[in-house]
Nucleic acid binder design. Structure first.
Lengths: 135, 135
DNA sequence: GACAAATGATACTAATATAGTATCATTATA
DNA sequence: TATAATGATACTATATTAGTATCATTTGTC
């Protein structure tokens, strides 16, 4: 059971690198050299981050990407949601419930509680907190 | 992101039914009628539960399955581990880490902490607690 | 303006995991 | 011995994840 897939992981790494070069526009080529991520895959990821207004892109020669949001406002949980969809631990039970009749389902309550906790904790992880340690 | 897959879900349902008929041996046919789970798939699941000594199987006419463990000693997290492998939320990071050099990686610490919490909470959910409510 | 170097959009393939099926062998009971 | 059950195993189908390829568009520089 994976909490974080490859694209989220790559996005994290790319963002951490971009944060370190905050003043500049960073190109895909630079990121590929540095992070050894397959070029096309990384491009797709960065395009998505652009669409979701995490990064801003610049076309043409000398182009690339730079941060839109402040690093401490980019949460791990946001990236997970962008690349893996909403974090719903209880999805399966809501679809095919063990106890479809009960209003006060112990299991669902519990899973919801766990989900809330996980999201809260993931919200406490930002790009800032991640990029600091590597530097 | 799914915490619980179909087979775990089916296993849960089957176990809940078997618990309700604790004194008896329950056959696949009975479970299929009751739970509307594809027969072959359910058989595979029950065979696995037999191998993992959650159920005991009886071959031959009048055969079927009965509980080995007490219902309150079968934890949801056990079923997840049987069908989905060990619950490792941080698997991805351990494989392709954002911060491979650091001993004191903030992210890893955090993810480990979350994982522990999730496991502890899932440990509090047993077949007993699930089968009660439906009854 | 032409060229080069960048991203945008999009569609495709490959690999893996999940979900489900089918069949023959074995066992136990009536 | 026939039958009704599970055991073992191998197969197919579908969905998700991972990765690739290509052409269009934009922009800076000569």
């Amino acid at each position: 059971m994976k909490l974080i897939t490859r694209d989220t992981d790559y996005a994290l790494k790319a963002l951490c690198f971009i944060v370190k070069h905050k003043e500049r526009i960073v190109s895909v080529s630079e990121l590929v050299n540095e992070l050894k991520i397959p070029r096309s895959f990384l491009r797709k990821i960065l395009q998505e981050l652009n669409k979701k207004r995490v990064l801003k892109s610049y076309k043409g020669q000398g182009g690339g990407f730079s941060l839109v949001k402040l690093a401490h406002k980019i949460f791990l949980v946001d990236l997970i949601e962008i690349f893996q969809g909403p974090l719903r631990l209880n999805e399966c039970f809501l679809k095919k419930m063990v106890c479809p009749d009960m209003r006060t389902c112990v299991l669902r309550k519990k899973i919801n509680q766990i989900e809330k906790y996980v999201i809260r904790e993931l919200k406490s992880i930002t790009i800032t907190s991640l990029s600091k340690q590597g530097a």
